[in-house]
Every structure is written in C-alpha cells, then in structure tokens.
C-alpha cells in the first residue's frame, strides 16, 4: 500500500533522512517596517518573554519562555511582530532586491509571507495576493490591517488564472497548496496517501505553468512547500526545468541541498540547487528559486 507511517518513513530514509520525533518551537518574526529591533526585543524581555535568535534568519526569534500567549501582547496586536514558524520564514528571503517591485503572492492566505514580503519591500511597490478561498482572504485582510501593510491588493482568484489580472511580475512567490508534513499534523501518516500527493503535485504544476506565463523575462519565482514528498518538490522542479523554460538558481539559505537522483530517477542536475529542510526544531520545508532561461 502506498500509504502509512512505515511507507513514508522509508521513503524519507531513501532520501537521506532518518526519522526522528520533532519538537517544534514557536517562532516570531519582527516586522522591521513597524518596529525598531533592539527596542522591541527589550519590550518583550520586560514582559518576561525569553527569545533566542534563529541563526539562519535575520528577523526571526524562537520563543524560549513566555508566561502568556505571544499572540495576545500589545506588541503583537500592534503588528510589531508576527508569529511565523521558522522554516516558513525562509522562502520570502530568497528573492533578490524587492524594493519597488511588482510581486505576485499566488497562494497567499492567511498571509504570513505576504506580510513578510511587504516588510522586505518596506511597503513600496505592489504585491498582488491571490487565494482561491474567500474566507481565508478575510484572515489575510486582518493580518494586513494588524501589520499596517499598505502595498497589497488581494483578489479571490485561482492562481491558475493569474494572467487575468493583466500584470507581468518581477517576483512571484509560489507557496503552493501541498500535502503538508507530519511535524505540524499528528494524523498526517494516517490521512495521506500517494494519490493525494500526486493530486497536489498536478495542481502545483498547473500553478507553476501560469506563474511562468506572468513572470517578466528577468523575474524570479520562489517555489515552496511544507511537504516532504519528492513528487511535490524535486520531481516538480525537474518537470518545470524541462517544460517551462526555467532553471533552478543557486540559493544560500538554511537546509540541505536536494538530490538530483530520486527513487532511481535521474533529474536535471540543477535540481540540486533546491533546499530541503527536514523537521527538527522547525517543520519540514522545501524551497527553491527559478529564473527564466534567456534565449
């Protein structure tokens, strides 16, 4: 059977990772457009919140100790920081220069990364943020209001129809819908099967196809999933390289280099530029950056 705990764990082992239990740590990201880092850290410390800098992130901190919810402080409600899992903070940081750019966040709700993009853009340029689920767009609006984001337009739109917006983009974030991973879902192994994974992988390829159409020639796509399954990650990137006239760029970020040979299949060598973040203190993640191949 193509499902179940043993089945998936043995796949991870084949990919070079030995299963271990995971203790996820809650993390925050300072919204530097709204807060001066040193003074915010002092304020949080005076509330008895103990933080540890996340070594691979500029603005990320792990919560080591807090007597109350970090989602209920004035500082949080005023948008001075966001609660954002550490690995989930990585994708938006892979773009080069974001100031004044036209950015598409194709699968954006509830907006953790939209706010991070706005922060990296210092509220300049424009972010067009799409999501297919209207009720999740309400959650996104709340985040935008709380964090004082000023440069974003949201649409209730399927990312596969992004071209109907009529804009070409400098940067595109594809934080695509995916199968998730066991670190954030206790019942993951019980619920997920390979046909599920393949269904998601197909949707992801359709979103990638549309993204390649609306990307400017010198633009960048960052693709990310919180899935550990190669069908949604390396195999999709291999497919993109072979079908969408894009290449996988080198990135410098947390995580290990992906493999270009998976389950006996030899992939395009540039797939090695993708990064896998296996669950440990963070959840599992997969990230990479794509650029168009110039003629």
């Amino acid at each position: 059977m193509m499902s179940g705990r043993e089945f998936f764990i043995s796949r991870y082992q084949e990919l070079g990772w030995k299963y271990e239990d995971v203790e996820l740590k809650q993390a925050i990201r300072i919204n530097s457009m709204n807060a001066e880092k040193a003074s915010l850290l002092k304020r949080l410390e005076s509330r008895g919140i103990k933080l540890e800098k996340i070594p691979f992130l500029e603005d990320g901190y792990w919560i080591c100790k807090s007597e109350f919810s970090v989602g209920a402080t004035s500082e949080y409600l005023l948008g001075l920081y966001s609660i954002q899992e550490a690995a989930a903070q990585v994708p938006a940081t892979l773009f080069t220069e974001l100031t004044d750019k036209t950015v598409l966040d194709a699968c954006s709700a509830p907006g953790g990364k939209t706010v991070q993009l706005a922060d990296l853009m210092k509220n300049t340029g424009v972010i067009i943020a799409l999501d297919i689920e209207k009720r999740r767009l309400t959650a996104l609006s709340n985040q935008l209001e709380r964090c004082r984001v000023e440069n974003t337009i949201t649409y209730n739109l399927d990312a596969r129809q992004a071209s109907t917006v009529g804009v070409k983009f400098d940067r595109i974030l594809l934080d695509v819908p995916c199968s998730g991973n066991f670190a954030t879902d206790r019942d993951w192994f019980k619920r997920r099967t390979i046909p599920d994974v393949e269904r998601n992988a197909k949707l992801q390829r359709e979103i990638l196809t549309q993204a390649a159409k609306v990307l400017k020639d010198d633009g960048e796509i960052v693709y990310s999933t919180c899935s550990l399954e190669p069908e949604e990650n390396e195999l999709n990137m291999d497919w993109a390289v072979k079908n969408l006239n894009v290449q996988v760029e080198e990135v410098r970020c947390h995580g290990e280099k992906a493999r270009a040979s998976i389950f006996g299949r030899h992939l395009d060598s540039s797939v090695e530029n993708c990064r896998r973040i296996w669950p440990s203190r963070t959840q599992g993640f997969f990230v990479c950056k794509l650029k168009k191949v110039c003629a």
Binding site: T124, G125, V126, I128, K134, L137, L140, S141, L144, E145, R148, E150, N151, T152, I153, T154, Y155, N156, V165, G166, V167
Partner: peptide, 18 residues
C-alpha cells in the same frame, strides 16, 4: 497610493490601507 491605483481592478477584495 499612485502605484496601487492603476492596478486595483473593481473586484479586489482588499487594497492598500483599509
């Protein structure tokens, strides 16, 4: 703002500063 205005079509859900 001036950048957003030409890009915000009629059917947006949220735009700029609420």
């Amino acid at each position: 703002n001036k950048t957003l205005k030409p890009l915000a079509s009629k059917d947006f859900f949220h735009a700029g500063i609420y």
